[in-house]
Amino acid sequence: MNQPSFADPAVSDTKRNKWLRKTRTQRIIFLLVAITPAFGGYVLFTLYPNLLSVYYSLLKWDGISEPEFVGLDNYVRMVQDKYVWRALWHNLFYMVTVPVLVILISLVLGYLLANKGYRGTAFFKVLFFFPNILSTVVIALLWAFIYDGMFGLLNGLLRIIGIPIGNYYWLGETRTALAAIVPPYVWGSVGLYVIIFMNAMATIPKSLYEAAILEGAGHMTRLFQITLPLIMPIIRVSALFLILGSLKSFENQMILTNGGPAGSTDVIGLYMFNLAFGENFHNYGYASAVGMFLFVILVAAKLIMDKFLPDRSVEY
């Protein structure tokens, strides 16, 4: 509908107000139609399950029999549960090691590919990104073969270089199982962040590097004085995704070790899953309480990151 000319004295105030009300109504209807599917999906698949988990955490329930309301007993039990705190320690270990390694390796590879001018850069981008097209199950099974004691690739390489490792099972020993989960996470994540950092570096004007070269700045100076400050918002968002992801993920642990040996790789997400769906548990109430604990940890991690990693964009 064409907008009437309000400067025309022939248009009455009544007609003008009617047109404004009709236009406002059309905008409201359009906004409702546009946001309803997304908001409905959020309510149905995110908000409602979370609120239901809060209710379940106050129950003693195995998912089959009649639920029994126990109030905060599940939370009291959780605070006294040593396995929860052991799993939390493992989560914190992955929260520190995985993001740091992924970001450092991705920054180095991205910087080399973006600024060194190697031939076949497009090929390397595809090569590094390849693990990201694999499912978590495939990655975990691949690394399970690498760590195998008898036929594993890792032990084979160690024997070739003269280290008598024998038939050492990396995932079957409490001394090495926790750290052995880190490489699958890193290998499966680096490729994506290499692409992200390369694209971020490509937006930096070449004139800044040319001016720095004329001033005698080397590669390290350009990296720390130009590249990193200008892509710091991207690094911050990447660190946020990696930290939150390492806190809530448990797929690699479930497939590679199922929390073993002797709980040495158990994490909160896996412990909660086994409480709810394990062969000898089926305790949905207590599992929901552990899930609420994990939710609080995720929120706290986000707030701490906002405090110590503020969004300080650098303009050029």
Rank of each mutant, 00 (worst) to 15 (best):
I163L: 15
G166S: 14
G166N: 03
N167D: 09
Y168C: 11
Y168Q: 03
Y169G: 03
W170F: 10
L171E: 14
L171Q: 02
G172S: 13
G172E: 12
E173C: 12
E173R: 01
T174G: 05
R175Q: 02
R175W: 00
R175C: 01
T176H: 02
T176K: 03
A179K: 01
I181G: 00
P184I: 08
P184T: 07
Y185D: 02
Y185C: 14
V186G: 05
V186L: 09
W187L: 00
W187H: 03
G188P: 14
G188W: 06
S189N: 14
V190R: 12
G191S: 03
L192C: 05
I195H: 12
I195T: 04
F197M: 00
M198Y: 01
M198C: 07
N199M: 04
N199F: 00
A200I: 10
M201C: 04
M201D: 03
A202Q: 15
A202T: 00
A202R: 08
T203K: 11
P205E: 09
K206Q: 15
K206F: 05
S207C: 13
L208H: 10
L208G: 08
Y209M: 11
Y209H: 13
A211R: 15
A211H: 10
A211Q: 05
I213P: 15
I213E: 14
L214T: 14
L214F: 08
E215G: 15
E215H: 10
G216P: 12
H219D: 15
H219K: 14
M220Q: 03
T221H: 00
F224G: 02
Q225G: 08
Q225N: 10
I226R: 13
L228A: 08
L228K: 07
P229K: 07
P229W: 04
L230A: 14
P233R: 11
P233Q: 15
R236S: 07
R236T: 04
S238I: 15
L240R: 13
F241G: 12
L242D: 07
L244E: 08
L244N: 14
G245D: 01
G245K: 10
L247E: 02
S249W: 07
M254Q: 11
M254W: 05
L256P: 04
L256N: 05
N258K: 06
N258S: 11
N258M: 09
G259I: 13
P261I: 01
A262V: 05
S264D: 04
S264Y: 00
T265H: 01
T265G: 14
T265I: 10
T265E: 03
D266Y: 11
D266V: 03
D266K: 08
V267D: 13
I268S: 02
G269E: 01
Y271R: 13
Y271F: 08
M272H: 13
M272S: 15
F273S: 06
N274T: 09
L275Q: 15
A276S: 09
E279N: 05
E279I: 08
N280K: 13
H282C: 07
Y284T: 09
Y286R: 10
A289F: 02
V290M: 06
V290G: 10
G291F: 08
L294E: 05
V296N: 05
I297R: 02
I297S: 15
V299G: 08
A301Y: 05
K302W: 02
L303Q: 13
